[in-house]
């Protein structure tokens, strides 16, 4: 035994180090992905006998108007969430100075990201509240009539996205602040001597150097947009009339709420969401893979 161990230690050691983490990850993350795919072919209430119905859940999804709303909202989320990348860059540039107290300013600007999305949702619900909410009052002051954003099916999704952008911009900002901190000063000085400044400097000299920060900012923003659940749940529960649903929330609603325990149908929605996210995830992994193997 001990001779075997001595001879093969280097070969066995990585697997022993990996075992606990890998087993946990396989049981709780990898296996469930495939189980969900399997469940999506069943009609199942979570307790009784599951009944194989083939692709019937997917056929139903294709004609489900709630699915269309959720899907449309996800696209709006994704598109508008991308605003956090330029907005975060703008604030980072604004704060990238060395004046007294700037560290504290940077920390306070970062604040929204540290707070739970549940709290962010409540803060913005208060901000939008009809009758006395601050934004409601401001709109009333300028136009004469206030707008109850979270009760208006046409505006509600935008209202929730605005709440989501708040912490997301803070996150992107901190990524860019770190990036700006590491921009090569000699290149900036050289470009300055060549007469580059303002936008041209930003576009041709700074942004190329901020590439790694931009990559991560885009990754976390895409994932954040498609994962949006907390804010929808807290601020509107998908309402009014289901108009602010997104796929992640609609899935939860079908599988685990008063609307019934339709695990199979819920799993089918999750598989669709997973498929959409896999497109992006494969892109990220492909890029990371290239970086790793090039080294």
């Amino acid at each position: 035994m001990s001779a075997y161990w001595k001879a093969n230690q280097r070969r066995l050691a990585p697997w022993l180090f990996l075992a606990p983490g890998l087993i946990m990850f396989a049981v709780y993350v990898i296996a469930p992905i495939f189980q969900s795919m399997w469940i999506s072919f069943y009609d199942w209430d979570g307790l009784g006998e599951a009944k194989w119905i083939g692709t019937a859940n997917y056929a139903e999804l294709a004609g489900d108007p709630n699915m269309v709303t959720s899907f449309k909202n996800n696209i709006i989320w994704l598109a508008l969430y991308m605003l956090s990348v330029p907005a975060g860059l703008l604030i980072a540039i604004f704060l990238n100075q060395t004046v007294r107290g700037i560290r504290l300013y940077k920390s306070l600007f970062f604040f929204p990201f540290v707070i739970s999305q549940v709290v962010v949702g409540l803060i913005f619900s208060w901000f939008y509240a009809p009758g006395f909410g601050l934004l409601y009052k401001v709109i009333e002051f300028f136009t004469g009539t206030g707008v109850a954003i979270l009760a208006d099916p046409d505006l509600v999704t935008y209202g929730i996205i605005a709440a989501g952008l708040w912490p997301q911009i803070a996150y992107v900002m901190i990524l860019y602040l770190t990036g700006l901190n590491n921009v090569a000063p000699d290149q900036v000085e050289a470009a300055r001597l060549d007469g580059a400044k303002g936008w041209r400097m930003l576009w041709y000299v700074i942004l190329p150097q901020l590439r790694p920060a931009t990559f991560i900012a885009v990754v976390v923003t895409v994932i954040g947009a498609l994962r949006s659940f907390d804010l929808v749940s807290i601020m509107t529960s998908g309402g009014p009339f289901g108009s602010s649903r997104v796929l992640s929330y609609y899935m939860y609603e079908t599988a685990l709420s008063e609307y019934g325990y339709r695990m199979g149908y819920g799993a089918a929605i999750a598989v669709v969401l997973f498929g959409i996210m896999m497109v992006f995830i494969s892109g990220f992994i492909w890029k990371m893979w290239r970086d790793e193997t090039e080294r």
Binding site: R11, G46, G266, A270, I285
Partner: peptide, 28 residues
Amino acid sequence: YKFKANLLIFFMFVAGNFVPFQILMVPV
């Protein structure tokens, strides 16, 4: 350690970290 499955396992951890929670919800 250098071994065959190294990068594969690494990227499995990375990718798993990005999946939507909903795909895990029912089985978990």
